[in-house]
């Protein structure tokens, strides 16, 4: 396959960036998208050009490290896949492919296509946990039965990989799908109840402080989410936050 790649190059957080064009030939259909970029980088190195910097790690769609806005969509044209699971057979020879970093004020660019998503960690730290110490004396795992439906829904929410595609896709750069996934997971489990109110209030507050946009229910995040996290979670967060605000003592 012969392709024309248009890639965002930016040397550092404060530098000015621009789209650069790289023609590439010899791309194979069985390559993953990131292997295609490896292949490009190998050529660039041989030509003495600094390789394109992008985040990636597990390359099997679970670590959430890879990102990229490909031809106008987060993680490219595929559905329920991350960029590392996208394969070149989705493209045709002769295609022009635009490759841009995830864009949001809360995701500043580090270099080229690599962005800083630590805002997500800070949202988690604001309440995305259950306060239980390691002791070896917690109650038996089967002491509290959890209805299968709730356990399954909690699991579905918990499969969020924190990649940021929701933010990148959302026209408002909203992080609601991400935040609501963790809030929902604990909201659906009995273990999450004692801290449920504080959790939703604090996590939403942190999300606001990070400078993410708001939700206008376009549903784009759900479509582009590689793990298919449901909008139902955002509704649950909305509901929990409403009740928590009304009933909290503060």
């Amino acid at each position: 396959m012969d392709l024309t790649l248009k890639i965002w190059r930016q040397n550092g957080p404060q530098e000015k960036g621009e789209m650069k064009t790289y023609p590439i030939s010899g791309v194979e259909q069985d390559m993953s998208f990131l292997e295609m970029l490896d292949y490009l980088n190998d050529q660039l190195i041989n030509e003495g050009i600094e390789p394109v910097v992008f985040d990636h790690d597990c390359r099997e769609g679970i670590c959430g490290m890879c990102s990229l806005f490909i031809n106008g969509e987060a993680h490219g044209p595929g559905r329920k896949v991350t960029t590392c699971q996208l394969h070149m057979r989705e493209f045709k020879s002769g295609d022009t492919i635009y490759i841009e970093p995830f864009r949001a004020k809360a995701f500043p660019i580090i270099k080229d296509l690599m962005v800083d998503r630590s805002a997500f960690d800070r949202i988690q730290r604001a309440g995305g946990y259950i306060s239980v110490n390691t002791s070896g004396n917690t109650i038996d795992a089967n002491a509290i039965p959890v209805p299968k439906e709730n356990a399954d829904k909690a699991f579905d929410a918990a499969t969020c990989i924190g990649c940021g595609a929701c933010v990148a896709t959302c026209k408002n750069s909203s992080a609601m799908l991400f935040a609501s996934a963790k809030i929902s997971q604990f909201s659906l489990l009995p273990q999450g109840q004692p801290e449920a109110k504080e959790r939703v209030l604090n996590m939403v507050h942190q999300m606001d402080l990070e400078g993410f946009g708001n939700c206008t229910n376009t549903g784009a995040c759900e479509v582009e989410c590689p793990k298919g996290i449901s909008l139902e979670n955002i509704a649950r967060m909305n509901r929990d936050y409403l009740f928590a605000s009304l009933s909290s003592n503060k």
């Binding site: 070896g136 917690t138 299968k148």
Partner: peptide, 17 residues
């Protein structure tokens, strides 16, 4: 025990166990 207390959503059967 520890993981369940932390909210790890392990697979459960219809009885909730």
């Amino acid at each position: 025990d520890q993981c369940v207390a932390q909210g790890v959503p392990f697979a459960r059967d219809y009885g909730g166990l």
